[in-house]
Amino acid sequence: MKRLFPYAVLAGEVGLEVLRARLDDVPIEFSMISAAQRTVALHEVERERWGTATLTVRVRLPKRELADGPWTNVACAAIVSERRTNVRAHVPLEQDEPGVWLGEVTLHRERHVNKAELIAQVSATVDEIDSRLIGRSEASWTIDLLATTPTKKDGIRTEWVDFGGEGAVHLDLFRSDPWFVEAVGEEPTLYLNKRFEGIEAILRSDRAVDRPAQNALASQIAQEVWTVLFTSVIRGLPKDDQGRPEWPGGWQESTLRKMLPDVLPDYSLTDALAEIVAREDGAGGDLHARVAHAAAVQARRTRHLGNFLRAFRRKAQEEEQ
């Protein structure tokens, strides 16, 4: 999809950085802020109870382009939002020097649960209309309230659990399974069964000889995860008032965007979404086979299974000699 603005917008890059962060006025280690990963980790061990997090942000605008362009009354703001708590805080920034804007963004602990998104947005008067959006930061920052290190963890939550143990009632039914995928709610979770002999040893092994088996196992787990996720998502797709499927947002949307191009490669994303729903309702045909294929692509099955087989055969040959 291509977009057109009915007025002049910035072509140059809007850069956004977080310079420092404080939890209740006490600075956190700068190592918890990663510009490369565009992530701030706010969970300091032994400092779990805090009320507010204050981030100092700096935005850099394409100075020359702004000076030469048709824009007046330029304003710059940071926006912190978290979908799950319906927070969208708009914080105007102050111009520090031409092209550089600074400000402080506050997050209240009780208004957030997991990850907040931070972006910068630029507005100006164009063609005599005030406050038109003329630019936003290319990539957003993630403010991760639960992470202890600023690494982008947009992965599926993974937990090691003893499926038969206390506090794992919901997994009791699957106590003899090596893993279980839960794909409902705000966050899908992969549970790995500690009770299942060998799985932890292989997955956590750092021996080179275990690598092929480890990757093949990981690939198999991943394939199942993606299959479950996809199937679960298309069952509960929201529809608009004309009955057409809508993008669901969250992990559901991410799953679709990742897998649809492999499920229906000759359909655009929008068309693929509609088509999936149509096939799901009516004669499914090859849909499930295609989903299995797309899941295998995500799980890199070809590579990992191929390597495993090669290693396995080599080992068998060695033993014969």
Binding site: T149, L190, N215
Partner: peptide, 24 residues
């Protein structure tokens, strides 16, 4: 330069790259 230590990660290394929800 080193940050203070946090708890070890739950996600096995081999799985990490395969369960990414980042947009493609």
């Amino acid at each position: 330069a080193r940050p203070s230590e946090g708890p070890p990660d739950e996600v096995p290394e081999a799985l990490r790259g395969l369960l990414d929800l980042d947009p493609p």
